[in-house]
Amino acid sequence: MITCLGDTFFPDVGVATVKLLRRLGVTVDFPQAQTCCGQPHFNSGYHDEARTLAKHTMEAFAKSPLIVTPSGSCAAMVKLEYPELFHDDPPWHAHAVAFAKRTHELSDFLINVLKIDDVGAHFDGKVTYHMACHLRGLGLVNEPIRLIQKVRGLQYVPLERHDECCGFGGSFAVRYPQISGAMVTDKTAFIEKAAVDAVVATDAGCLMNIGGCLNRNGSKVRILHLAELLAQQ
């Protein structure tokens, strides 16, 4: 599942995900009907629209036995919210529960389904890691760090307050630019303090926000999606 933000702004992440999965022997398909999981609508309180998009997404993946997404936020939407969205609609509810079970965030899939923490990646440089908030909801607290630490040539530098929100939060960043700005400013200051070549995250939203702030400040630190890091050899 490569949904709206990844599709539009970070297609390299999708490409890296496909390459990585294929390298690990996984057959990958990309159903063209997929667009957006409906999270922006859900989070803004437009639940009817979110339901429509959830149905659309479930139908798009009807034939997929397993769904992997390099996005904690889409995975969280599917796994944590879809079933509840259809609480009063038993057939769709059952469908949503099954769909949630088949869906995995990338690091979850690698560590907990494929049971691999060394994907044979190589990266020369110092890297730090920002934990996306949706991984907290999914309980994926250590998975990405385990994967990062197995990358050859990489020096992992823990990030101060690595699990604090970067201030993205979708519409939050636009509604309250000052508060969101204070959050991302602190986040990038910690990243600079870590003196790394790149900061890794698992979500397009964080990368947009952190990357946009680093770029505005003329920083030399690169943003890197976990899939991009793990695809490197």
């Binding site: 702004f9 999708g14 946009g212 505005r216």
Partner: peptide, 16 residues
């Protein structure tokens, strides 16, 4: 506060 990423020249569905 910060810059916004430009849409990629080619979305993933094209790269697929």
């Amino acid at each position: 506060i910060r810059d916004f990423p430009a849409p990629a020249a080619m979305p993933f569905r094209e790269r697929w």
